[in-house]
Nucleic acid binder design. Structure first.
Lengths: 141, 141
DNA sequence: TTTGCTATCTTTAGCGC
DNA sequence: GGCGCTAAAGATAGCAA
């Protein structure tokens, strides 16, 4: 039982990697929660994971998604957002910022838009199926 | 040496709380890093902290800041952003979104803007001195 | 596949400097 | 204030069912 000390390298075995991911994600969530409670601060972890894939959902969730996003960035009320889905977050941000950029070429978020669109588009538009949770929140790749 | 088991509650003693914060933040960063390496995923932690305050810096850092923000949200290249400053992140988002809202009352980010502005403004505009790091990144309150 | 177990490894609270 | 130490508490790899 737990003979080896951890070799800090990518776990090539699929099931072993997923098992470790699940255990360590749980532990990480607990750590984040404890740090928040003990020190009276807000904290969250963002984990971009290939797991927890779901069928696409394209319904309108902009309000929930953006609220979660900004609560995360501003560190407020994260405890209330546990496990909230952030499906299509990437797609939404991408579309919003492309729209902003299109209408405001000289607006100060123009570089943001371009950069975000570039970083999120990827080679094959895989941003359309992102999925996430807050505290600890995951983004489906 | 470590006689008590942790009482999961706010540590009222100032120096003890800060000491615990520092130790646990370090541990959390290590956990995040390990999870990322072992499972081949991108991850970051966002810690909103009252510590590490700095004199205000108002220079133009929008590009860096927004790049870090979106890399964080999209889970790309986080390893390259270790300890990058995100000074004035909150202020910038606030201003950007207020501007967007002002020009696009019916734009789909309008609710985002209002919510974000409300949540970040606070009672006394303290968002002007935010400071942050990525992986694990902190936001000065 | 998931759940439970636990020996072993890792983190960290409490101290002394 | 910070750093180093140590033992208790906590996390988890490997296995069983």
């Amino acid at each position: 039982m737990t003979r080896k000390k951890v070799k800090l390298a990518y776990i090539t075995n699929d099931s072993a990697r997923k098992a470790t991911f699940k255990k360590r994600k749980k532990g990480l969530m607990k750590k984040v929660s404890e740090l928040s409670t003990l020190c009276g601060i807000e904290a969250c972890a963002i984990i971009c994971s290939p797991y927890d894939a779901q069928p696409e959902r394209k319904d309108n969730r902009e309000k929930e998604v953006t609220q979660a996003m900004f609560q995360c960035l501003t560190g407020k009320s994260l405890q209330n957002l546990n496990l909230m889905d952030l499906n299509d977050l990437g797609w939404m941000i991408d579309q919003n910022l492309k729209e902003i950029n299109k209408r405001f070429g000289t607006f100060q978020t123009a570089t943001t838009s371009q950069m975000a669109a570039a970083s999120m588009a990827g080679p094959s538009g895989e941003h359309a199926s992102q999925r996430a949770e807050v505290q600890t929140f995951e983004v489906k790749k």
